[in-house]
Every structure is written in structure tokens, then in C-alpha cells.
Design a protein around this nucleic acid. Sequence first.
DNA 1: CTGAAAGCGCTTACAG
DNA 2: CTGAAAGCGCTTACAG
Lengths: 334, 334
Amino acid sequence: MGVTVKDVAKAAGVSTATVSRALRGFDTVDPATREHVLRTAETLHYVGSPAAAALTTGRMNSVGIITPYISRWSFARMLSGIERELRASDLDVVLYCLGDPSDPHPAPPIQRLRKRVDGFIVMSVAAESPDLRGLFELDVPVSLIGSSAEGASSVMIDDTAGARTATEHLIGLGHQRIGLIYGRENRDPLVLERPRYLGFVAALEEAGLTVDRTLEEAGHFTVSGGAEAMRRLLKAPEPPTAVFAMSDEMAFGAISALREAGLEPGQDLALVGFDGHDMAQFFGLTTVVQPLEDLGAHAARRFVEALARPGRPPIHSVLPTELVVRHSSTGSPV
Amino acid sequence: MGVTVKDVAKAAGVSTATVSRALRGFDTVDPATREHVLRTAETLHYVGSPAAAALTTGRMNSVGIITPYISRWSFARMLSGIERELRASDLDVVLYCLGDPSDPHPAPPIQRLRKRVDGFIVMSVAAESPDLRGLFELDVPVSLIGSSAEGASSVMIDDTAGARTATEHLIGLGHQRIGLIYGRENRDPLVLERPRYLGFVAALEEAGLTVDRTLEEAGHFTVSGGAEAMRRLLKAPEPPTAVFAMSDEMAFGAISALREAGLEPGQDLALVGFDGHDMAQFFGLTTVVQPLEDLGAHAARRFVEALARPGRPPIHSVLPTELVVRHSSTGSPV
DNA sequence: CTGAAAGCGCTTACAG
DNA sequence: CTGAAAGCGCTTACAG
């Protein structure tokens, strides 16, 4: 069903061992022989069988990407960063999407996947999550984004600090009643939710403000969820004068709910989001920008390194975030 | 480095052939034997080697996804649809991102990829694109989204009709000077661009309107590109009174450019987008909604079928689009 | 620097 | 219904 090393060997008049060595650039091959083999392989349009190579070497030359979402903006962005970085290393990308961590979903077939890839890059899943059960005992490189674990490299942002900065910004503008739009009722599954909440609370407490649970609404990390959360907040007996949304997409929804109610973000209610969404600028949305593609690229680089030099101690990196102030919080013109 | 069929065979007291057959549910195995083998495999935590299986059967149990973009909204959405559908078939998803079709980029290693997967799903790449050179001679199933070719199944929307409907909507509202925000200067690479243009032009011509090239601006399918395109249109000696944008993201940018200029979409200029973006509703954007996830799921299903029953004639499907009218074109309240 | 041979872990005719 | 044996296409000690 195709040209094999045997064919190349015969055509080149050498052994299959030599073909194999030449093709992979071993320097134990006579340069002239190598040249000749390469040319012969070329002529015959030889393409190696990764399955056969994998069977002998144990290396699949691919990496498994484990993620809760694909199309959610920030995840697509990280994925894009991973892909871009991996393109150079000719590792193939095998994508596995878990599904929403708060919804019931089948456990990923980690053991089966492990046989298909040389290791994993995991996007925003807590190391302790049942979805990752067994992953760290696999003895393959694991590179984490947004979470961390003992034996794995990780790259994250400081979610707590980011949320705290956002909240402090609102406090600095004089707000005392600050609402929150978080994600899901159960704040543990999505790894970024808890630290952002802690940052929010810390800022309030430091400023001597009380944490008012009635000012916290779930927005499910979607635009429509954010809109609904904001509608509920506006219906409160004493609505907040400012709101921190844990994602820009929820903040977009919040903006639309405000407009619906005849209110202008920045004028009537100060709003801050989180992510640095493409469209934040166009909404005039103040937001905590995180370097999503860089997070992905970083994790991919760590993975490639771990594969090349096993046994090195894992590296934990924290990438900076930046509060970008716009109209939605200050009310000043866009 | 792990438990193999041999180990299972020995433990179960049968041959490896029987283990193999039992594990794959062949009905030529005595039920009691099968049960016993299954239990033994379970106990031993046996996990098959896909590489070895692939080497003997020639099947990799995975599908290559070829796409120009990952994080662009509509592509992420289709990808999500593909993934969801494939999850059930336990085919692994190997992702290959080409890069922007209008920018120079390396040719994808189709021949190499072919050895890793059982076939391909291609998102929005013209069958004649150099990126796909050799793909159709590979004799593996190919399932196309948004384009079509002789020997491959395909699923698409009618881009021409969608664009025509959008344009007719604007004409029906009484507009005579209708501008266009398209993608790139070179409209061929991204397969959807040419048909949308043809639909736009057809609607104008049928209405007896002249096609004015000075009212056409490139928006690069990005939010900021759309904003710039709209700014240029507004600077025209005689600006359009309505604009059709080939994507919602460009339309969002256009909206922000309008607001910047103190204009209100729907009041001062009628705007229609294309895609059915999550956020269109929140912008009050009139748009041609296309079933992106369904396109992906559809293509995936075709692929799985083609794999199961090779030789069947390919199926070409067209999924419906729907014009959803909102404030941005009619000016009526959201 | 090169080759003969074994082996990676499965599956599949072939026989029984 | 089951097993012995060959073979898929590579790579890798081992010899030379």
C-alpha cells in the first residue's frame, strides 16, 4: 500500500538499517551514502509510517490537548497559541474536549489517549479534577495552563491579583456597592473561578467594604448569561453602582442589559471585565487583559522541552495581566 | 512498558488471537470465553496499542481536521461541532491549522498527515487550493465544509443566496447606495468570499442598481478591519446609506465606527452582517444566520459514514441560512 | 560506517 | 469456536 524502507533500501542498494539512519540524519552515516539514500527516498516518494516508528520507538510524535471548551473565545485563543508553537516542532495535535466542567460528562479515556500521544497539555482544568484522574501517574510530560501540580510544568496568570486589581480600580473610583458576575453556582470546577473570587473579596475587605452575597450573580461565562445576571442585579432593592464580571463575554451581556434598561455603562454603573477580548475595545470595556495566545505558546514550549529533556524539574511560570481602563468604568469618552 | 495481548492471553489461558477477537467483540468467540477474556483484560488494566493495531490494520482511528483558522469565531464553532460529533465514534481528532489563506504559509504536509489519519475533514478551503494539493488523490475519505469536489462529500450553505437575501433586504428598505465590507483584497482564497460577493452583486443588478466599486472596502474578517472599512466608507464623497458586511465580526467593527462618528446603525445607516454570531443579538445586528456547529457535525457524520462504507457515492448537502432582522437595518427598537 | 536479525504489539488468513 | 504463525514497517542493539 506504499513505499517502505525496504523498497528504498533495495533501490539504494543498502540495508534498511542504513536507510533508517540516513533518513533521520544520524551522523554515523557516510555523507555520500546519506545523500544517495535521501535522493532515492525522494524519488520513490517515500513517506515513513508513523505507526511502525511508534511501535518500535514508543514515541507517537504527538501531543494531546485536553480542554473543557473549544469555541469559547479565550480557549480558542489559547488553543491557537499552542498550535502555532507546536507547528514548528512537527508534533501532531490531538484534540480532546471534555465538555463543561460543571455539567456531567464522561471521563476522558486518559489511558487510551496516553497510548496515542507522548504527553499532554491541559487547559484550565484543576489538577485535582476527576477528569484528570491518573494523568500524573502516567510518567509522560504534562504541561498545564491555568493550574499547577507537583510534577508538571505550568503557566498561569495571577487570577487573584487580576481580580483584585479590577476591584480596586472600582473602589478607587469611589464605589462602595460592587456587584459580581461570576460563572457557575459551583465555583470549583473551572479552575480560574475561585482565585478570581478571592481577589474580588480581598479587595473589598481591604477597603473595609462588606461582601454582600446578594450582589453576586451567576453568568455562566456566556454573553446571555451575563445579561441575565446584570438584569437580576439591577432588580435588587439596592443595586450595585459597579460590577466586576469574571469574563468579558459576560460583561458584554451586562452592557446590553444595561442599555436595555436605559443605563449607560460608565455613566450609570461602572463595569469591569476580565480577559482582554478582541471586542472589549469596541464596547469601551475596561478589562483585565491576559496574554491568552502566549499562555498557550508557553505551555507548548514547556512541553516540547520536557519531551526533549526528560527528568528536568518542571517550571512554573506566571505571565502578567494588565488592567486596561476604558469608558465602561470611568465614564470618560471612549 | 505495559500489559500486552500476550499477557492477557497467558493470564486468560487462551491465544492472542482469541484475545484480539474477544476484545473487539467478534461474534465468532464463545460468549463464556469472551467474558473471561474481557474480565482478565480489565483486571490487568490492559490498554491496546493503537500503533500496533494501526500497523496491522492500516487504520489509525483518527481524522485530520484541516482549517485556515482556529480561534476565529465561526471556525471555532464549526470545529466544536465536528468534535462533538466525533466524540461518539472514538475517532481521534488531529488538528492542522493552515494559517490565513491570503498570507504566505508553508504547504501542509498532506502526505505525512495521511499516514497519521484515516481521512480528512476540511473547513472552508477551496478544493483547488494549493494547500489541498494531492489530497484528493490519496484515496481516503475527505469531507468538505464550505467547498465541494468530485469525489468528496461536502456540506455547505448557499453563500450566494445568503448574501443576496441580505442585500435584497436592504434594497427592500429603500436603499439605493449599498456599500460592501468584504474580507481581503484577493477574494479567492477564502472560499466563501466569492459567492457572497456574487450574491451581493446579483441582488443589486436585479434591482437595477449599479455596482459601485468605490463602495466596497476590505475588512479582513476582523472587528478592527471592519471598523476601518466603515470609516473609509463614511469618508466617501457620497457615503452609502446601507452596508452589507460579509461577517458579523466585521459588522461589529462597523457599528463601533458608526457610533464613533455619532451615527446610529439602523437610524443613520442600515447594516447587515453574516454568520449569526453569539453577540449579534446584543448589538441588535441584522444578520444571515448560518448553522455553524451543524455544518461541522454534518461533515463529521459524512466522514464517519464514508469510513464505514467506502465506495459509496459522496453526498453534497446544503444547509439553510436564515436572515434575522434586527435594529441595525430597520431602525426599529431592539 | 554498515548489515543481518530480532522485535515492537497487534491482527489475520489458514487450519483444525 | 480456537490456535500457531506470519506479517505489518519500522528501529536498534550487536557484530563486523
